[in-house]
Simulated assay, not measured.
Amino acid sequence: MLALFAVLGVVMGDRPVLLAVAVATAVAAVAGFAAWRPLIGWPLLAAMVAVAAGLLVLGHGGSANLVWMGFCVAAGWVALASALPVALTGGALLGAALLGEWAQQTEEPGWFAWVVGTAFTLVACAFARRLRATVVELQKAQHQLAERSRAEERSRIAGEVHDVIGHALTVSLLHISSARLALDEDPDEARHALEEAERLARASLEEVRATVGLMRTDATGEVVPMPDAHDISGLVESFRGAGADIGLTVVGDLSSLGPSRGLAAYRIVQEALTNATRHAPGEPVTVLVTVEGGTATVVVRNGGAADPAAPVGNGLLGMRDRAEGVGGRLKAGADPRGWLVEAVLPA
C-alpha cells in the first residue's frame, strides 16, 4: 500500500523523474522489509519515519497529492503493531511533518484534512489494537476457565467413583467374609450373604455407570438419579445387612437439604461408614443426622482406637471437599470414644 502511494506521488508530483523513482523505490523497499520481518515497536517506527521522509520528498508543496495518504497508512501501521507510547511518538512526528508543510503552504486548503485524517487513523488503530488485545485476553481467560472447569469435573467424578467403589467393596467383603464363615455350618446363610454381595455389586456398578455417564456429552437414555439424604437409611441398612452394628437417628426434615446438599450428606455418611467398617471392624457405629434452624449436622461416631500414624487418605479429603463444596464444613479425628466425623451443612 505504501509503495502504491509512493508511485502516485511520482505521477502526481513535479520532482525530477530519476529522483522520484529512486525515492519511491526506497520507500517500497523499506516498507517491504518492515512487512517481511515483521517489525514492531521502535524498529517499526524508525522504518515508518524513513518511509514518511521519502513521501515528504515526493509530495512537498502540494496538498492535492495523494502521496499524503501514505502518512495515514504509516500512522495506522505503527498504532496497530506497537504499544501506545510508540504510536503517540509516531503520530507526533507525522503530524509535525504535515504541520510543517501547512506552515509553508498556508494557501493550500488540503493540509487540515491530512492532519485530521492521520490523527483519526492513529486513534482508531490504537483502539483497534487495544480491542484486539482485550479479545485475546478474554479468549485466554475463557480457555483457562474451561480447563479449570474440566479439572474440577474430573475431580468430582473421581470422588463419586471413589465413594461408590469403596462402599461396594467394603460391604461386599463383609458379605463374603460372612459367607465364608457360614459356609460349613449354615449354607443358607452363606448363600444369602453371597446374594447380597452380588446385589450390592450390581447396584454399585449401575451407580458407577451413571456417574461416569455424566462425563459423556453424547450419552442418550435415562440417567440413574444420584442418591440424596433420604437414601441414608437404605445405605445404613446395606451395612447392617453385611453384619455391621450401626445405629441411625434422623431428626428433622431431610427434604430441606435439596439434591446437592443431600448428595453431600449421603456421600459423607457413606465414606465415614466405609472407613469405620474397614479400620475398626466389629465396633459399633452411630449415625446422627439433624436438620434444624437452617443447618444440617451429620455426625458419624465409631468405637476403636485410631492409628495416629495413619496418613490422611483421599476419602477424608473427599468428605471435606464435599462439605465445603456446598458451603459447609467438616472435621474428623479421634475423640475419647473412638473416631468422630462431623459435618455441618446449610439446609
Rank of each mutant, 00 (worst) to 15 (best):
E196S: 13
S155E: 15
G315A: 07
V300Y: 00
L340K: 03
A168T: 09
V49I: 10
G221Y: 02
S149K: 06
D228G: 12
R15M: 08
R320L: 07
G70W: 10
D321F: 02
G293A: 04
T217G: 06
V86Y: 03
M12I: 06
G294R: 06
R267H: 13
G293R: 12
L316E: 02
D231C: 14
R132G: 07
I246M: 08
A74M: 08
P187E: 14
R209C: 10
E292M: 09
L55P: 03
A133I: 10
T25M: 07
V312H: 14
A24T: 03
P43I: 04
V269P: 01
V73E: 15
T25A: 15
I40Y: 05
V78D: 00
F5R: 00
L4A: 15
A309H: 09
L205N: 09
G62A: 12
T249R: 12
L248E: 03
G247V: 10
A332H: 06
W68L: 02
G13M: 07
G90K: 09
A28T: 05
A24N: 03
A305I: 10
E101T: 09
A343V: 09
V212Q: 08
A133C: 11
G241M: 14
V341T: 06
E152P: 03
K331G: 13
S178P: 00
F71Q: 03
G90M: 11
M1D: 15
T134N: 12
R37L: 09
A74P: 01
R154M: 13
G338H: 03
T121F: 02
A310V: 10
P225Q: 07
W36E: 11
G293M: 07
L145K: 14
I157H: 03
L66S: 07
T295S: 10
T217N: 04
S255T: 09
L18P: 04
H192N: 15
C125E: 04
T134H: 13
M226N: 14
P43V: 06
G325E: 01
R320M: 09
G318D: 00
D307E: 13
G95F: 05
R337W: 05
V135L: 10
L55D: 00
A87H: 02
G61F: 15
T89F: 08
R216K: 14
L257T: 00
